[in-house]
């Protein structure tokens, strides 16, 4: 058990509720005006509609902007440098996420990425939280 364990950010109920979105980058489309959102919405900011359908997103996209974090956030103190970015997905919406499997100094705008799943946190007591991340398409 590491010292980062003391940051309790999620209760068990929250973890269960957020699993579908954390594991599979899902979007929701407003049934009234067709606007697509990655952020979970109850009311459409465009048309104020309240009806949404779940849309599975492919997870593929291009880096729209990025940064290299040199001073990691406290719960991931020992992680070392990592990349963060806003990804413009194939479907036209943006998603925010960490960019993994690449030296963050090598990141460039326009790089092609794909979504994968990585271990984000381990929280007391024994809850492991996985989250989608983006990694560069190499092959």
């Amino acid at each position: 058990m590491t010292e980062e364990y003391r940051f309790i950010e999620h209760c068990a109920g929250d973890i269960n509720r957020t699993i579908p979105k954390r594991y599979r980058l899902q979007g929701s489309r407003c049934s009234k005006c067709g606007a697509l959102f990655v952020t979970k919405r109850l009311i459409c900011p465009e048309c104020k509609g309240t009806d949404f359908e779940e849309v599975a997103l492919s997870g593929r996209g291009k880096v729209y902007t990025y940064s290299a974090v040199k001073v990691p956030l406290l719960p991931v103190l020992k992680k070392g440098h990592y990349g963060i970015g806003i990804i413009e997905l194939e479907e036209g919406v943006k998603a925010e996420g960490q960019i993994v499997d690449i030296d963050p100094d090598d990141l460039k705008v326009g790089m092609e990425v794909d979504a994968t799943i990585r271990r984000a946190r381990e929280e007391y007591p024994g809850k492991v939280i996985y989250m989608y991340r983006f990694k560069p398409v190499r092959r």
Partner: peptide
């Protein structure tokens, strides 16, 4: 395995 990988993430890939 990287800092944020484990048997579950590798199995998933």
């Amino acid at each position: 395995a990287g800092f944020d990988e484990d048997e579950v993430t590798m199995g998933y890939e």
